[in-house]
């Protein structure tokens, strides 16, 4: 008998890059199932390694990880967006959020989002936003449950 290590949520470090790349791969692979416009490049496995490294380097990107012991079981990537014409000029936009299936339904996504909201406050962003494919009911139910509301709609058409 052993106790499962507790889940901790923190900023991602360089040592997390391999675990992060794996989760990013799964995030993009999952999203492409919802709409052909999310179809990924053929060398996705390679491309996510660079994407993970870049996200850690980028000062306007916030990457959080949920760790269980030594392994990364979930992550969130957000970017700060600014529009000087709006009274609430800064928005922290959650671009990617993924938790491994075996760790789902345990509040991990909520922990990640709550930490993102903390980070938003530190950066004086008045709004936290999230984007996900319209057909992703799992994401929609999750965000509605933790207090998000519909905000912006993006429609697409093949050119």
């Amino acid at each position: 008998m052993y106790a499962e290590p507790a889940i901790t949520v923190r900023r991602a470090m360089d040592s997390d890059v391999a675990g992060l790349a794996e989760l990013m791969y799964r995030f993009y692979a999952f999203n492409e199932e919802f709409d052909p416009s999310w179809a990924t490049v053929r060398n996705l496995r390679e491309a996510v390694k660079e994407h993970a490294a870049e996200a850690l380097r980028d000062p306007s990107s916030i990457v959080l990880v949920a760790a269980s012991g030594n392994s990364v079981i979930g992550y969130l990537r957000a970017a700060l967006e600014e529009n000087r014409l709006l009274a609430s000029s800064r928005t922290l936009v959650i671009k990617e959020l993924y938790v491994k299936p075996e760790h789902r339904r345990a509040g991990v996504a909520t922990l990640l989002v709550n930490k993102a909201v903390d980070e938003a406050r530190k950066l004086r962003a008045g709004l936290v936003a999230v984007e996900f494919p319209s057909a992703n009911k799992i994401a929609e139910d999750l965000y509605l449950k933790i207090g998000f509301r519909p905000y912006l709609v993006r429609y697409v058409k093949e050119a």
Binding site: R26, A29, F30, E33, P101, E102, R104, R105, I138
Partner: peptide, 15 residues
Amino acid sequence: ARLKSLNEELDPNFK
């Protein structure tokens, strides 16, 4: 394999 992985994403009962 992609189909089975998609099922896992939709429901952890299909790990």
